[in-house]
């Protein structure tokens, strides 16, 4: 990861090793203190998904909690048109999400510092962002676009968290219809699989390589465990206890050893307590 070579003569972008450029950020125009965003072009050896094109994606560290997705989009549109913004708790490849859930059914997201993947329309914006002068900071909340925090935000959240029962019912209904359809399809597929395993009229079974996870027998870890245990039990039952003299002797020996062990443990416990001066009654 080579450090950025594009340095302006007059307004220098602050560059740290590992190729990150620093973008100062302040909450409002009159804030005294600034956070520093660390930005870099997104570079990984194997990017699986298409949502982070390598040349147009800017990787941003240390995005403060009050910068939501839309706020971040506004912030970076300064450098060019932003196609999408993805905010994450920790850097990593993007997860494939299941069926898209409405917000109310998703578990609440953590409101901490984030890392972001900002995808621009053009690759030149990435360079523009990286070479932004380090003494000129981005401003989160401006007069034109105020960002609500504190009490205002909480009241807004409270209002939004309440949904009309009818709307909720609609969401639930549409999801369940969808779900039922999926279930039906799945059942259909399984039935077909099973059919394929059936004997034909001449008694032959056609063995095919089905795709993964399509086993006829339902099988789970717990079932495997149970089978192993059953085997072990069977083995143990075959053995005879206290049958031979040596076995009997061994049992007695074990008993004495047990007593000794207990005695020794007690002694150790006492030693420990004595070390902690636990016997001083007052």
């Amino acid at each position: 990861m080579a450090p950025s070579k594009k340095k302006h003569a007059t307004k220098q972008a602050c560059v740290t090793p590992e190729g990150f450029a620093v973008l100062p950020l302040q909450f409002s125009p009159d804030s005294a203190a600034r956070h520093s965003l660390y930005v870099k072009e997104h570079k990984v050896r194997a990017e699986k998904t298409s949502c982070r094109p390598l040349d147009r994606t800017l990787f941003v560290l240390n995005i403060p909690p009050y910068c939501s997705q839309s706020v971040t989009q506004d912030l970076f549109s300064k450098f060019g048109v932003v196609a999408s913004v993805e905010l994450r708790d920790v850097p990593g490849s993007s997860q494939e999400s299941g069926p898209k859930l409405p917000k109310i059914f998703r578990p609440a997201a953590k409101q901490g510092f984030k890392v972001g993947y900002v995808v621009f329309e053009s690759s030149s914006s990435v360079t523009a962002a990286k070479s932004h002068p380090h003494d000129e900071s981005l401003v989160v909340s401006t007069e034109q676009k105020p960002v609500k925090t504190g009490v205002q935000k909480w009241i807004q959240h409270y209002t939004k968290s309440i949904i009309h029962p009818d709307k909720l019912q609609q969401t639930v209904d549409s999801f369940m219809q969808d779900y039922d359809k999926r279930q039906e399809k799945e059942a259909e597929r399984q039935r077909e699989e099973a059919e394929k395993q059936q004997e034909d009229e001449e008694g032959w079974v056609k063995v095919t390589r089905g795709h993964k996870g399509a086993k006829a027998r339902p099988h789970s870890e717990a079932a495997n465990q149970r089978t192993l245990q059953r085997e072990a039990r069977k083995k143990r039952r075959k053995e005879l206890m206290n049958f031979y003299t040596w076995q009997h002797k061994n049992t007695q020996k074990e008993h004495i050893a047990e007593l000794r062990r207990k005695f020794e443990e007690d002694k150790q416990r006492i030693a420990l307590m004595r070390a902690q001066r636990k016997f001083k009654p007052y």
């Binding site: 740290t16 090793p17 590992e18 203190a33 403060p64 925090t149 504190g150 009490v151």
Partner: peptide, 23 residues
Amino acid sequence: EVKTIPNVEAILEDFRVMGKGLV
């Protein structure tokens, strides 16, 4: 050597920003 330390100034500012109206 590159070292990182918490940005205390900005954090204190964040305390104020995040609790606007309450703090």
